[in-house]
Amino acid sequence: MFNIEGYRGTRVENYDLVKKQLQALVHDETNQIANLSNASALLNQFLDRINWVGFYLTDTNEELVLGPFQGLPACIRIPFGKGVCGTAAATKTTIRVEDVNQFPGHIACDAASQSEIVIPMIKNGELLGVLDIDAPEKNRFDEVDQEKLEEFVELLVQHL
């Protein structure tokens, strides 16, 4: 699951290692853009079978705007309630989509994307934005991915 040279842990151990690396990157850093940039680069380096990872940030109470990411150019603004990211933002819940072509109103920024997971970033009850990860295969994300990526986001939000 992860591209860690020479390391062969379980999926849970691998996610825990990535969380430790995130902690080292964001420790003592308060700049939001720097922390989000390093977090997207870290996930892009370690998650396999993905084609886009990044953040959409709350710009108004009605839309998200593109933030730091790794991958092809992406949609810049997404209204709350539209597509997977906008729906996750509006509901403040994680959304895991096995087949994006079956998601009503899906916004196709990259035609290669087949599945997606979006995790809201919430601090003190306020939506800061969402972590969005796309994969070029169906059913890429499961319960373990969801649980561990939610923990990753929780840790990251403490430094935003």
Rank of each mutant, 00 (worst) to 15 (best):
3 N>K: 13
130 V>F: 07
73 P>L: 00
88 A>Q: 05
158 Q>N: 08
149 L>D: 05
12 V>K: 14
157 V>W: 04
152 F>H: 10
111 A>Y: 12
115 S>D: 03
9 G>S: 10
83 G>P: 06
135 A>Q: 05
131 L>P: 13
26 V>H: 00
130 V>D: 00
155 L>N: 07
150 E>V: 09
80 F>I: 03
151 E>R: 06
80 F>G: 00
150 E>M: 11
98 E>T: 06
23 Q>P: 13
54 G>D: 09
91 T>R: 11
92 K>P: 07
111 A>T: 15
80 F>Q: 03
33 I>Y: 13
41 A>C: 14
46 F>K: 08
110 D>G: 13
39 A>V: 03
78 I>N: 07
130 V>H: 00
105 G>I: 03
33 I>L: 07
124 N>W: 11
76 I>V: 15
149 L>W: 03
114 Q>F: 05
23 Q>W: 11
45 Q>M: 11
59 D>I: 08
131 L>H: 02
57 L>G: 06
12 V>E: 15
57 L>Q: 08
145 D>W: 06
61 N>R: 11
52 W>C: 08
141 F>S: 04
143 E>R: 12
154 E>L: 01
123 K>Y: 10
145 D>E: 07
80 F>Y: 14
144 V>W: 11
37 S>W: 00
146 Q>E: 15
127 L>S: 03
87 T>H: 06
158 Q>V: 04
18 V>L: 13
39 A>T: 01
52 W>L: 03
102 Q>S: 14
55 F>K: 07
131 L>A: 02
2 F>M: 14
92 K>E: 10
28 D>H: 10
124 N>F: 00
40 S>P: 15
75 C>I: 15
125 G>P: 09
110 D>E: 10
39 A>S: 15
41 A>E: 15
98 E>C: 03
151 E>C: 00
46 F>R: 09
72 L>I: 11
46 F>T: 02
64 L>A: 10
58 T>A: 11
37 S>I: 00
40 S>M: 06
8 R>F: 14
115 S>C: 05
56 Y>W: 05
29 E>M: 02
97 V>D: 00
156 L>A: 04
11 R>D: 11
16 D>R: 12
144 V>A: 13
138 K>L: 13
72 L>C: 10
158 Q>D: 01
61 N>C: 04
122 I>V: 15
131 L>V: 14
113 S>Y: 10
90 A>T: 05
74 A>H: 08
87 T>S: 07
17 L>F: 13
42 L>Q: 01
160 L>S: 00
84 V>H: 08
159 H>N: 01
80 F>V: 08
125 G>V: 01
70 Q>F: 10
44 N>K: 03
61 N>Q: 07
17 L>G: 09
44 N>M: 04
16 D>T: 12
7 Y>S: 10
85 C>S: 13
106 H>N: 04
47 L>A: 10
22 L>P: 12
21 Q>C: 09
75 C>F: 06
137 E>K: 12
56 Y>G: 08
44 N>V: 11
46 F>Q: 09
124 N>V: 02
40 S>A: 15
9 G>D: 10
130 V>C: 08
97 V>H: 01
53 V>S: 01
127 L>I: 02
63 E>D: 15
157 V>Q: 03
28 D>L: 03
100 V>C: 02
65 V>H: 00
89 A>P: 12
3 N>F: 11
2 F>P: 13
77 R>V: 00
